[in-house]
Amino acid sequence: MIKVLFVCLGNICRSPMAEAIFRQKVKEVGLEKEIIIDSAGTGDWHIGKRPHEGTLQILKENNIDSSNITARQVTMKDLSDFDYIIAMDAQNLGNLTRMRGRDFSGEIQRLLDYIPKSKVVDVPDPYFTGNFQEVYNLIEEACTKLLAYIQEKEQL
């Protein structure tokens, strides 16, 4: 099994959106038995809560299932269990990089690193900007590229 973890700050906007979008993309290509997908936050403010209403709305508008997604915080176990840890921005990437142990053998990258020549490097936080459509568009494109990357690398 290949395990992919999406990480943002509070795990209520960007990373659950990425989890839901990526889960749908994986299902569309029939790899849901090969790839496990989850999301978490580096902060603990929203543990146990459903995604932000703006995230739920944009996912609903695009017919993407968001059921069974609740906020949780990244754990040290996540850093040993997941093969691909995908941060939404440089701050979360830095936090994850500092957390990982010497035994970590997976990849930690920013999501938008998978979009070659992207003018944007960090997924903006719609909790502060309110622009869920922009965030959806960025995540959707990056998840398509990430899935292609994983399929090629893992020979799926």
Rank of each mutant, 00 (worst) to 15 (best):
Q151G: 03
I85P: 14
E61A: 05
N92W: 11
K119D: 14
K27A: 13
N92T: 07
Q109F: 12
E32T: 02
L93K: 12
T97H: 09
S105A: 07
D78V: 03
N68H: 15
G130I: 11
L111N: 04
G54R: 09
K49A: 11
V4C: 13
V7Q: 12
A148L: 04
K33V: 02
F132V: 06
A87H: 00
V121L: 14
I35P: 02
F6K: 09
E61F: 00
E154R: 15
L138I: 15
G43C: 07
E141N: 10
V4G: 05
I150P: 06
L9F: 13
L156H: 08
I36S: 08
G10R: 03
Y84A: 07
I108G: 07
I69M: 08
I115S: 12
P116E: 15
Q133I: 10
R100Y: 01
V121S: 13
G94L: 09
E141S: 10
T97V: 11
T144K: 14
S66R: 00
L146A: 05
K77A: 11
A20L: 01
K49H: 15
I2C: 01
I47P: 05
N68V: 02
G41W: 12
E34H: 12
V135P: 05
M99D: 09
N92I: 05
D125L: 07
Y136H: 03
S105K: 15
D38P: 08
S39E: 06
L146F: 08
Q109Y: 06
L56F: 00
D113H: 14
N131H: 13
Q155A: 12
I36D: 02
E61R: 04
I108D: 10
E134A: 12
K3S: 11
A142H: 10
T70A: 02
S118A: 15
L96H: 05
A90C: 01
L138V: 09
D125Y: 01
Q155M: 11
E154Q: 15
I35G: 03
N92S: 10
V121Q: 15
C13H: 12
V121R: 14
K153Q: 08
Q109E: 09
S39Y: 01
A87S: 00
M1D: 04
M1T: 03
S118N: 15
Q155F: 11
